[in-house]
């Protein structure tokens, strides 16, 4: 299993008490599978993604990425895990303004200590994969919203992650471009055998994914169809 969340509980300070963002959530995502996580704003979707990305340590439960249990890892080891095994596609592209499209990808290889010449070639290949080979030397302000999001996706794939975490990839795009981005994510997941979690509030693209789950008040529930791989350990009502 490339990504496994088991009995995750996450709370935040809220005045004198604590607000439960995730309540006993479990999720397992094997390689080559796209799981969409839907839910209303504030339901805990982004918290789920942050926990899976090892950006937040949950109050309880375990997170396993590429076979490594993250609870005992220090900040340096977590950074190394994110660098080499987790690809993050942000809601907004979050591209670095000083870098060209190709360099946005090359920086990932640089973080991982890979050879610059090899990194440049791979970056161009990936940009070609997402249909941006002609825009490799353009900076973010020279790209459209859809192109930026595709660079964002390509950047997440640069270090060949086993887990791909995608946060609202279509929120800033129109329907047509949103569908294209979602199809691209699904195709890349199947081609590269990543375990992909796509957090979205847009249910119009769910037909493309393999499985769907819904978060409501911090609890995760599988949505039919297709079902099967999502753990049912979390209760569906509060």
């Amino acid at each position: 299993m490339n990504l496994s969340l088991t009995d995750i509980t996450l709370t935040y300070p809220d005045g004198t008490g604590r607000l439960t963002a995730l309540d006993q959530v479990s999720l397992e995502v094997p390689a080559g599978t796209v799981v969409a996580v839907v839910g209303p704003s504030g339901s805990g979707k982004s918290s789920l993604l942050a926990v899976a990305a090892t950006l937040i340590t949950p109050d309880s439960g375990s997170v396993t990425v590429a076979g490594r249990e993250t609870r005992t890892l220090g900040p340096g080891a977590l950074a190394e895990l994110r660098r080499n095994h987790i690809g993050v596609v942000f809601q907004q592209p979050n591209l670095l303004p000083s870098l060209t499209a190709a360099e946005q990808l090359q920086v990932m290889a640089h973080l991982a200590g890979r050879r610059p010449r090899h990194a440049r070639r791979r970056a161009l290949e990936l940009l070609d994969t997402v249909g941006l080979s002609q825009q490799a030397d353009r900076r973010p302000h020279q790209l459209s919203g859809g192109q930026r999001q595709r660079v964002n996706i390509a950047r997440a794939l640069m270090n060949e992650p086993s887990v791909l975490l995608v946060d609202e990839p279509t929120s800033a795009l129109d329907q047509e471009r949103g569908a294209a981005v979602m199809n691209l994510l699904v195709n890349l997941t199947h081609e590269r055998c990543t375990a992909t979690v796509v957090v979205t509030h847009d249910r119009s693209h769910l037909r493309a994914v393999d499985r769907t789950a819904e978060v409501h008040d911090g609890r995760l529930a599988e949505l039919p169809p297709p079902g099967g791989l999502i753990s049912r350990r979390a209760p569906t009502t509060t």
């Binding site: 950006l55 950074a79 660098r83 979050n94």
Partner: peptide
């Protein structure tokens, strides 16, 4: 700071 946050989220160590 936003760029730094992005780089950290992508796996850049604080030392880097």
């Amino acid at each position: 700071s936003t760029d730094i946050a992005v780089l950290k989220a992508l796996g850049a160590s604080t030392g880097y």
